[in-house]
Design a protein around this nucleic acid. Structure first.
Length: 416
RNA sequence: CGGGGCGUGGCUCAGUUUGGCUAGAGCGCAGCGUUCGGGACGCUGAGGCCACAGGUUCAAGUCCUGUCGCCCCGACCA
């Protein structure tokens, strides 16, 4: 993509609406723009990041045996009355009455809808287990939206649901999801913790939260500095790790995923039963598994930035390479930049070419701010000696050489 | 919802305490010239009913009342 053809409104100064690091950098790098409190537009760069995260999630979900589907955001309110959650979740539900007089809500989550769907299909234990997931916008009238994408009223969530004939099956799916989550967050470049947690309004017994350390995290966790075991912070302080005997440290974290063993809460309420191998009716045993996809963008930025801007992990980077053509009015430089750009594109590498007629400083600053993991600079050196430069955003390592050599090195970095 | 802060061109802010002429600066934007490897410089120019509504006053960005919006702290959550 040519910079001049896309829409990357970078900001030199920090908008007053942002206080947290991730929020500031998202706005400055032109990833998102606020429409109203808790509601954001994803601009081209932000969308590419979102898509990359989704790609990782899809790959790991499929690997764990989950099938993707897409449920409606519009839901009949009566489903919530049936499950009994209409009152519990009432204060965050966005609802209205349509022209037919139906009570409709915008889905804050989808246990009811998926259970209703599965109910009409599953009738025998032979059809189980089954795991379904979707990546979709959720709507919650949050009491207090904050920190940009960290807590918003319309956000992207990956929600998966497992259906089993017995607890043993649920345990197995729960474990599989647990492992998949670890791989997903690792691939997102996150340093994360797992905490046994309360199930809250979801119901059920067993649940685990996936937390990432973040300065503007909303939750405090007690962490053992040695074995990295963590537990939720209540009021007690000065607790010691049961295994290491060391005093646990308070750490600010952001919840990016939560998995629950639901049991039969929803299946029993909505009548999602199957016939077991003894011919007896049983409610399906369920689990649900959420990831805050849009929130992950904030978490990744929190853990991957420096004073100059974002430093995207390679798999998340909105483009794999950023080509910086210094002085586009120099025909030789611009021609070379275009040539390399076309060549990389032809090889399936995603490239952003900064073709703006801007001074070097502006382009360097913007490139570092955007945080694309590798940069290729074509400028003065090229005019003098024909050499171009490859720079790694993360460690600032630079190598200079002939185009062939540099492109070879680039491919090593990208594929190695 | 309770507590605190803020609202002045696209962005960052000054001016409000102590009311006074046609409302300012920097960045950004448009044009011209000089520059050209880490957010250049000069000149010219466009862009604002000072969040909105009502009030006080000879006079309101500034004082009073109300409303709306945004941010931060708390309860809630991916």
């Amino acid at each position: 993509m040519l910079w001049s053809k896309t829409f990357i409104p970078t900001l030199k100064e920090t908008p007053q609406e942002a206080e947290s690091i991730s929020h500031q950098l998202m706005l400055k790098a032109g990833l998102v723009r606020m429409l109203m409190a808790g509601v954001y537009s994803y601009l081209p760069l932000g969308l590419r990041v979102l898509n990359n995260i989704e790609k990782i999630i899809r790959a790991e979900m499929e690997a764990a045996g989950a099938a993707e589907l897409l449920l409606p955001a519009l839901q009949p309110k009566e489903l919530w009355v049936k499950s009994g959650r209409d009152t519990v979740i009432a204060d965050v539900m966005i609802e209205f009455i349509d022209r037919r007089g139906r009570h409709i809500c915008l889905g804050p989550t989808h246990e009811e809808v998926i259970t209703e769907l599965v109910k009409s299909y599953v009738s025998s234990y032979r059809q189980l287990p089954m795991v379904l997931y979707q990546i979709q916008a959720k709507f919650r009238d949050e009491i207090r939206p904050r920190f940009g994408l960290v807590r918003s009223c319309e956000f992207i969530m990956k929600d998966a649901y497992s259906f089993d004939k017995d607890q043993q099956g649920l345990d197995k799916n729960y474990q599989a999801m647990h492992q998949a989550y670890k791989r997903i967050f690792s691939r997102c470049g996150l340093d994360f913790l797992t905490v046994a947690a309360d199930s809250g309004v979801m119901g059920g017994s067993v649940s685990h939260e996936f937390m990432v350390g973040a300065s503007d995290g909303e939750d405090i966790v007690l962490l053992c500095p040695q074995c990295k075991q963590a537990k939720p912070f209540k009021d007690e302080t000065k607790l010691t790790c049961p295994e290491c005997g060391i005093i646990l440290q308070k750490t600010n974290t952001l919840e990016v995923g939560h998995i629950f063993q639901l049991g039969t809460k929803y299946s029993a309420a909505l009548g999602a039963n199957f016939v077991d191998d003894k011919g007896k009716q049983q409610p399906v045993i369920m689990g649900c598994y959420g990831i805050g996809v849009s929130r992950l963008i904030a978490a990744i930025i929190e853990q991957n930035h420096d004073k100059d801007g974002i430093i995207w992990p390679a798999e998340i980077s909105p483009y794999q390479v950023s080509i910086i053509a210094l002085d586009v009015t120099d025909e030789l430089i611009f021609k070379k930049a275009l040539e390399i750009y076309e060549k990389l594109k032809a090889e399936g590498i995603e490239v952003l070419l900064d073709d703006r007629d801007e001074r070097a400083g502006v382009k360097f600053k913007d490139a570092d701010l955007l945080g694309i993991s590798t940069q290729i600079v074509i400028g003065r050196e090229f005019s003098k000696t024909g050499a171009i430069e490859l720079k790694m955003r993360r460690d600032n390592n630079k190598i200079t050489g002939k185009a062939e050599e540099i492109l070879g090195k680039l491919k090593e970095v990208l594929h190695g």
